[in-house]
Write a protein that binds this DNA or RNA. Structure first.
Lengths: 214, 214, 214, 214
DNA sequence: GATGAATGAGTTTTCATTCAT
DNA sequence: AATGAATGAAAACTCATTCAT
């Protein structure tokens, strides 16, 4: 599945990229502050540094802005994960690094991640699949990292358990952004990473024990 | 902290309760279908079975409806959890029952839970704390159930680990509603309950091992 | 074919009728002055004596106003014609009366008729047929009046000639509104009626002569 | 009265003519399809084969395009009529030829004629007279052709009757374009020409009889 | 207590026109 | 001469809220 094209009236591709970057940056701030629905297109234009007319030279509907924002955030997180996947070698250590790295990106982009999760549902039936696909891909990356550990006999897990574990890692990462108001009272990022990594990995190792006990 | 009062013009308390129940029922359906922002007050009035004028006899702003809805959903989930807490006796078995029960309510109310999580951020600074408090209470219930196991020597966990585990249980429950489009492809509710319970509890038991190793 | 329904949010039918009459009156004046496209909905609302919000309680789109206006004008002209048709008795005299009456309504409603002809094309594919049908009905009334003369041996015309003559009467009436800037320099309404009636009726009688000569 | 000047920034007259021809051709198609108001200047530029910037090198406002289009259509019809006038010799035959020729141009340019009549009212107070003048000229040509017949004793009509007859011919021509949706169901172009010519000329001849009878 | 007509501020989007390149 | 990105005024339409009945 290719990226969904957002139509622009302006032809100069380089300019389109530049203006859209301005736009995403401006919009994220506003979405964080007041949410997608309470943000007006005029505000987005202003925050992006151009007029309302110019805004509409680069998108067709307000929803396009949301799509662009979500897409960009996913890309950022996804890129970082990809790097870990590329260097993962099937050791538990590389899995831990992957998890820690992922949690750290989420921490850096916590506002963005938050916005994305609170607003995706506002995407039309049209754009939603493109965004959800990105998510599936990311969970898939964790599956691969774990799979390598399994192949490498570092872990012994069924397919189902691999999937669920990957899913859990993904979710616990998001939670750091999602429930920070509650979590940050108790833990620093590094504490959280360590605790969750323990719980996650020990969970997996136990699962493996259980299997061997059957 | 007491419940936030939503002002009504009508005095008869019994009537207020009745009308608001109609309202919540109608509104939830609409919020599930189109989200809070895309639902109009007229639609809410219609779905509730009375006129727009009457609607405003029982609330003051549209946001009040959202608050009422969120509050009601939390109450439902919370009530069920409370029962488990009341009967929990410090055995691992009662913890497992608590988890399973919680996951099942979430499954029953999955649409409602979803709506709530997607829309809470639309609550004003004013109403938000009242809702978040409910959430803290619920996590607190799990903490208590786990604590009893610890007191009972069924588990050996630090305060931090108790808190984090309670938090994780809570989150994994929500995930069943949140990510069902992805999870339901792989697991039935009962599968999910079993797998997550294993991962969660084994995670805790391992953590306990780790501590003893220090 | 029934009238096209223009949806109103307001339920009181009597009120709907009243407000729409206000609306039509206000809109016609504006359309005459600046045309449909150059007239804004706000102006229509103001000219109708209510707010923009109220306007939209009685219509759904700006085009609805145009449809209402066109429909109303046709109805007025058509009603008058219907009376003449009802009393027509197959004499040349009653045909002349019909023509004269028709020309006089057109004169009274000249602004309205003008507007209608300049703006119908702005009606959507959806509404157009309903308006054109009205026109066909009106031409049909003239056909009937002429047919009665033919049955009565006052005129001797083929079906085609009846149709064309009816059409010509209809068109010459419109022309009085359409080209008044040019015609009024030369003729008073009564002059125009007399001259056109002569040309039209003598045309028919000649046509009859021609047939008999074949 | 001279032609209204439409200002161009470009000096090269030949180029101006060429670009404007492209423009008129592109614009007519669009106006036929969606009307003047619903056509954007961007669309006109595109249909003309150049950029929006270039478009504005050859006109000053969107309305200029409409004026140019109307002017061009009138010129085409008018040119054809002029030829008939030049060769008219005062016989009924040449009158008939004139009528038939005129009806045929209207048929060829029916879309254009239609557009013109539906959109002239959109011309500003400034441009309108220039267009109406063209129309008066054209009616004048018919007056002249008829007058020659009168001078030639082929017809015996008062000045008023000549004017009205010329006017009627002109109008019936337009009607072929205007009401083709209704007329084409009944007649072919040639049928229409024959029938109308009969009615028109016989009308005139009768009128002449009537006069002599007074 | 219930109703629903009235309100108008606020929203998204379009598009004629300009002007630097 | 040609281009097309930038502009912002203006347009249609929505909807939470009020208040007279």
């Amino acid at each position: 599945m290719k990226k969904r094209e957002v139509q622009a009236s302006v032809k100069d591709e380089r300019l389109v990229k530049k203006r859209r970057d301005q736009m995403i940056k401006g919009a994220v701030t506003l979405f964080i502050e007041k949410g997608f629905h309470r943000t007006t297109t005029r505000e987005i234009a202003k925050a992006s540094g151009f007029s309302i007319g110019t805004l509409y030279e680069y998108i067709r509907t307000k929803e396009d802005v949301l799509y662009l924002v979500c897409d960009s955030i996913y890309d950022q997180v996804s890129d970082r994960l990809q790097k870990d996947l590329d260097t993962s070698c099937g050791t538990l250590e590389s899995l831990k690094t992957g998890i820690a790295d992922y949690f750290r990106v989420v921490d850096e982009l916590q506002d963005e991640v938050l916005v994305m999760y609170q607003e995706v549902k506002s995407l039309s039936k049209d754009a939603l699949p493109y965004v959800l696909k990105k998510e599936i891909e990311m969970v898939g990356m964790f599956e691969q990292i774990i799979s390598r550990c399994v192949e490498n006999k570092e872990l012994e897990l069924t397919e189902d358990q691999i999937k669920m574990s990957a899913h859990n890692i993904f979710v616990q990462g998001q939670m750091w952004a999602f429930r920070r108001w509650s979590l940050k009272k108790m833990y620093s990022l590094e504490d959280y990473i360590q605790l969750q990594t323990e719980l996650l990995i020990q969970g997996m190792r136990r699962a493996e024990t259980l299997i061997s006990n059957i």
